[in-house]
Simulated assay, not measured.
Amino acid sequence: MLWRGLTLACPSCGGRGLFRRWALYAIRERCPSCGLRFERMEGHWLGAVAVNTVVSAAAVIATVVAAMLVWGTDVSRGLLLGLAAPVGVGVPVLFDPVSRTLWTAIDALMRPPSPGDFD
């Protein structure tokens, strides 16, 4: 189920086509294959925001650590900022769709869908 979430598939049926386009908030309300409603409770997407924040912060930290391993601890702040800023802006935007399907899969594991969650 987590693999389905990581690969932008429905956690319930593995169906594709969950997004109208690759952009923020472009996920469909229900799975086109099985009809699973993704936002099963108010505030559902806060978990996806948390997952995205953790992954993005880890990517920025990994970028800074890698730069320090390559150039040493006397690397300039300008270089660190020049490397970390694009990662800090790009990763959250690009990872958003994955964080939404991954969080939906985690939620489905914690609270298995009931018949009322399907269309």
Rank of each mutant, 00 (worst) to 15 (best):
G5T: 02
L94I: 13
R30M: 02
L81T: 12
T63Y: 08
A105V: 02
V70L: 14
W22E: 04
A84M: 06
L80R: 09
M41F: 14
G90F: 05
R20M: 11
T104F: 09
E39H: 09
V64S: 07
R111V: 13
E29P: 02
T63I: 05
V89F: 13
A23M: 10
E42W: 12
A50V: 14
V60S: 01
P112M: 11
L79C: 05
R100Y: 12
L8M: 14
V51A: 10
F19R: 07
D117V: 10
L6T: 13
R20P: 03
M110W: 13
E42M: 08
G15I: 07
I61G: 09
M68L: 12
L79Y: 12
W103N: 02
A9K: 15
G5Y: 05
C34Y: 02
R30D: 01
M68K: 14
A58Y: 05
D119G: 11
V51I: 15
A85V: 14
R20E: 15
S99F: 03
V55P: 06
N52L: 04
W71L: 12
A105H: 00
R16H: 13
R111M: 10
L2D: 02
V98I: 15
S56L: 07
T101Q: 03
I27D: 04
C31N: 06
S12F: 03
G35R: 09
R30Q: 08
D74F: 08
S33L: 13
G78L: 11
L83E: 08
S114I: 11
R100P: 01
T73G: 14
D96C: 14
I106E: 03
G88T: 04
V60Y: 06
G5H: 06
S33T: 13
P86S: 09
V70R: 13
G88P: 03
A59H: 08
F118E: 00
I106P: 03
L18E: 05
I106V: 15
C31R: 05
L36S: 08
D107T: 00
A48Y: 04
A48S: 15
T101V: 05
H44D: 03
A57F: 12
E29I: 00
A66G: 12
V91S: 05
C13Y: 06
G47W: 11
T7H: 15
L2T: 09
P92W: 00
R37G: 03
R111W: 14
A48D: 04
L46G: 09
V51W: 01
V54E: 09
G35M: 06
N52T: 01
W3P: 07
G47D: 09
A108N: 10
A105W: 03
R30L: 02
G17C: 10
V93W: 10
C31K: 05
F95D: 00
T73C: 00
F38I: 04
G5A: 07
L6C: 13
L18A: 04
P92D: 01
R111Y: 12
R100C: 08
F118K: 00
P115H: 03
F95R: 01
A108S: 15
D96E: 08
P32T: 06
V98F: 13
V65E: 06
M68Y: 07
V75W: 00
L18T: 03
G35A: 02
S76L: 01
V93A: 10
S33K: 09
A59M: 09
A85Y: 04
L109P: 00
